[in-house]
Simulated assay, not measured.
Amino acid sequence: MTQEDGARIGLRERKKRETRVSLSQATIRLCVERGWDNVTVESIAEAADVSVRTFRNYFSSKGEAIAAGHLERMLRIADTLRGRPAAEPLWDSVVHAVLAQFAPGGESAAGPAPDQRWRDGLRLMLAEPALQGEVARANAAAQEALAEAVAARTGADAAHDIHPKLVAAVIGAGSAVAVEHCMGGEPPAPLAPVLREVFARLAAGLPTP
Rank of each mutant, 00 (worst) to 15 (best):
A169S: 14
G174M: 05
R53V: 09
A109P: 06
A138P: 05
A173I: 12
A87Y: 09
A159K: 15
A140M: 14
A87V: 08
W91H: 06
E144G: 14
E134A: 10
L81E: 01
G106Q: 03
A140E: 12
E88K: 14
L81A: 01
Q101V: 07
F59D: 00
T80S: 08
V167Y: 02
A65C: 11
G172K: 05
L122M: 15
A156K: 06
I162T: 11
V179T: 13
D157M: 09
P85G: 12
A113C: 11
F102Q: 07
L131E: 03
E148L: 09
M183V: 09
C182Q: 07
A103E: 04
A145N: 00
R153S: 12
C182N: 05
N139S: 15
H181N: 03
S61W: 02
R123K: 10
E88P: 08
A78D: 02
D157F: 00
A136G: 13
S51F: 11
P114M: 10
A159F: 07
A147M: 05
E144Y: 05
M74N: 06
L99Q: 03
G174A: 05
E107V: 10
I66P: 00
V179Q: 08
T80W: 04
V177Y: 14
E180V: 15
G155C: 11
A127W: 12
D49S: 15
V150K: 04
Q132F: 13
R117V: 14
